[in-house]
Each structure stands twice: as C-alpha cells, then as structure tokens.
Amino acid sequence: MRAELDAAYSGRTLAARAATAASCVAVAIAMVPLLAILLYVAQRGLGALSWSFFTRLPNPVGESGGGMANAIVGTLELVGLASLMGIPVGIAAGLFLAEYRTTMLTRVVRFSADVLAGVPSIIVGVVVYATVVVRMQHFSTLAGALALAVLMLPLVARTTDELARTVPDSLREAALALGASRWRIAIHVVLRTAGPGIRAGCMLAVARVCGETAPLLFTAFNNRFWNESLGDPTSSLQVQIFTYTMSPYDDWHAQAWAAALVLVAIVVVLNLAARRVLRGPKAA
C-alpha cells in the first residue's frame, strides 16, 4: 500500500518536473525570436545612429546620408496632439463609467469602448481619410493625430474605468457622509486614489499609439521636409521605417533600424516610466 502510494507520488513529482521543464522550454522558445528582434534592433540601430540622424532631413532618394529629424519631431507631434485629444476625454469618460456603473448608458459606452479598442487601426485610418482628409482636401498632421486619438480613447477610458472601480466604495461613502458632492468625490477621492494607476495607464496607451503605422498612411502621409503647420502632411518614424524597409538602399535599411531603435526606446521609456509611477507611492 505504502509502496504503491510512493510510486504514485513519485510518478506525480516526475510529471511535475516534466511540466516545469516544459514551461521553461516554452519560455526559451518564446525568447529566441523576441530577443533576436530586440538584439537586431539594438545592434543594427546603434550601428546606424549618428548625430546627423537626429539633426538632418532625409537626403534625396538613393543618396546616402541624411537623417530623420523631421520624422522624430513628427512622431512626437502626432502622439502629443493625440494625447491632448484622447487623454482628457478618455479620463472623463472613464470616471463617468466608474461612478455610474450600472446605468444603461454606461453599459452601452463600455461596450462601445471595448469594440472600438478592437477595431483594426487601418480601418480607423480609412475612416479619418474619408471624413477628414477628403473634406479638408489635405493630408495633415491633425488628421493623423485624430486617428491616433481615436485609437487611444477607448484604452484610456477603460483603464480609468477599471482603476476607478478598484477604489473602495468605503472611501466614497465616507466622503459622501462628510457631505462632499459627487464631483468632489470623483476628483478628490477617486481620481486621487487611482491617480498613479491612471497616469501609468495613460503612458501605456501613449506607448501603444506611438507605434501605430497603418492609420497614418492615409492621414498624416509623409513629408520630406519639416511640416510647416499642423495642416501639412508630416513625416513620422513609423511611416519612415515602413518606406525605408521596402526600399532597395542599404543606407535606408540602416536608417530604418536606427529609427526602429529610437521608436522602441520611446516605447520602453514610457513603459518603464509607467512602472515607476506605480512603484512610487508604494516605496514612499
């Protein structure tokens, strides 16, 4: 009897070991391509980064040299503008969802946000092209930023919603008992308690939108020069990576790697910052 149990147990521990080993193998398999991508970006990107990459405009086709200064600023402009549009609206909507969580309206809004978050970004680009670019008769930075804002909006709203809901109701009730009004509670209690999380969520949403390329193809288009106003087309790192990758020039491939490195660096910094924001209050 005892021997049987022992045998069964050793069989189970063996299975457990095998499972652990299998999961380690899975991690190893997953890490190979993923690390390969990061290493390629780091190695080739660093090799191609130079001062002129950050300070100069692209050279004419086929001439090597030149840089992506306008694309770097273009990406920052697009994402900055998109944040200005997407974040305040997203946070307001998210707070509303969290504070009135059971009404019919919030159910519809929450559902819309979930659906919108899943709409392929190319479709958002097409819609902005058809509604804004064709009407304004111009590819423009503004149109590109609008497309990105549409992608950002549901992310910010749902994160705020989720996080505001994690604020214990006891806090709200305490504030109500003290006679605070609803907006005071929303802003001073809910927003403050969930603040770091929401800030981190916004950073992650910004990071995600930083890499969106497809919606910019028909909206922000591209520009060889600095864009002179928000009504002009603009270059962006994302679109430049795409065009340079598809070109036959080795120098452009090198610059595409450099641009990828810069873009990944922006995304990583935003991600790390988001984590820091979260750790901050804990450490204090």
Partner: peptide, 18 residues
C-alpha cells in the same frame, strides 16, 4: 503636468506654424 509635457513636445510644431 502630463498635458504640459505633451504641449511642450508640440511647441516646435506650433511655433513653426506661426
């Protein structure tokens, strides 16, 4: 602060526009 930061990033674009 976050909004201000994004505004600052945007500043070069706006200032060039006017």
């Amino acid at each position: 602060l976050v909004l201000l930061a994004t505004g600052l990033v945007l500043a070069p674009g706006c200032s060039r526009s006017s």
